[in-house]
Structures are given as C-alpha cells and as structure tokens.
Design a protein around this nucleic acid. Sequence first.
DNA 1: GGGACTGTTCGATATTATTCGAACGGATTT
DNA 2: AAATCCGTTCGAATAATATCGAACAGTCCC
Lengths: 110, 110
Amino acid sequence: MAENDSFPIPDLYHPPGEDLVLTDILFALSDPARLEIVRQVASGAVDMAQCHLQNPDAPKSTKSHHMKVLREAGILRNEPAGRGRLLSLRLEDLDRRFPGLMQAVLAAQS
Amino acid sequence: MAENDSFPIPDLYHPPGEDLVLTDILFALSDPARLEIVRQVASGAVDMAQCHLQNPDAPKSTKSHHMKVLREAGILRNEPAGRGRLLSLRLEDLDRRFPGLMQAVLAAQS
DNA sequence: GGGACTGTTCGATATTATTCGAACGGATTT
DNA sequence: AAATCCGTTCGAATAATATCGAACAGTCCC
C-alpha cells in the first residue's frame, strides 16, 4: 500500500520534519563514518557518487546502509538525480526542531 | 596495576576533558534512558539513589551500566558520597570541547 | 561486629547493529 | 536493445550493546 497515492514519485521514505526524534538523530550521528558523510554534505548538496566513505574499500551496500540510517533519522534528503542520487542536509527541518544542534555538531573539531 | 599511584582515591575512571570524543558522546546520549538521566542531572548534582530510570523495574546493574556509559563518554561525573554516589554533569568540560552541544540537546523538547 | 543500604563488576543470554555479496531496477549511453 | 553506471534491497554472518542475576565491597547505623 502506498504511503501517499497523490504523491507523484514515492521513492524513498523521508520522515516529516515534525516527527524527527532526537535520540534517533544522535544515534545516526554517533557513527564516525556517518558523521563524516554529514560533514561532506553540510557544505551543499552532493552527488552520492562523489560522496566518499572513510573506508574507501567499503562496498556500496554498506554505503547505502549508512545513507538509509541518516535518511530515516531525518538528517539527509536523498533524491533521484540522473542515474544517481543527490544528497542534501535537511538543515531547516533540523534547526526548526532542534535549534543549534547541527551547528554545534558541525562546529565540533576532530 | 594502578593507573596513578599518587592519586589518593582511584575510584572510577573519568576521561580528561581534552579527550572527549564527539561520537562517543552522541552515542551515549542516543539512548532514551540515558538521555533522561542526563536531563535529571542537568539541573544540578543528584544522588544516584534519587535518580530514577524510565523503567522503574530495571535492576540496579542496568542502571549502573548506563551510568558507566555516560561516565566513560565524559558526560557525567560519578563520585562517592556517603554510602551512595553523587552524579553531576561535566558541563564545563563538555562546553569547552563542544560549545553549544549540551545546550542544544538539553533544550530539545520531547 | 552484624545488618541494612547503595553501587560496581562479572558472566551469560538476548537484542540490535554492522558488514558484505548477490540480486534487482532505473537512467544513461552507444 | 544491450551494456554500463549507480544505487537499493535482501539475507546471512558477524560484531557490538543491552539486560539481568549473582557475587562482592564500601558506608552507615545499631
């Protein structure tokens, strides 16, 4: 059953901005590989193909898994773009729900 | 072997403020039960006996485990006090290393 | 000292998360 | 249409966490 029949392209699920859960976001960011992905995307939208994991030998299924965790937590937007995918940070939604959180995380060094 | 023979009371290990790791902190806070503990302690030091878990039926070993994760991440200070323990937030260390992070987390609703 | 109170640690089990290969599917290119 | 590129999904194996009871240790009070 479709989640929303009126929506043209179902594609991957993204939680509404109001439904973001703090602990889910913290968990998604608590993995070094995922935090690194978020840092890469923070500067602006990035084609997934040009977004690299810390471990360059990791298979694409692992990369896709991390993207899923970040997307389902509401941190990343993941939309079709050509034959690949465009990743972007949902900063407006995040900042509306948890003001200052992403700024603090992204500003943190190391 | 003692970690530091000149230190009077070894007690439980607490990481130095400079050694705090962001992903470890995010992980520790990503558990709802632990985040609730942090909220209770945020207002001021609390005797561990008066700090309650979300699940009131949880055994003390579970409670102790969560305290350990929070302590080893550098979030909570856990010192002997009478026959119990006094818990306190390491806000100065946290804020020096990751400015604004705890404020954002604690300000978040839900 | 003996008993009650408070927590930590250990060991075993259960739950959850990660990793990776294989299969599949859409979009692009020739 | 076929081949290629790019990524998701599935299933199985592995690794990491959580949970809980039991044993142990310090502190307080009598």
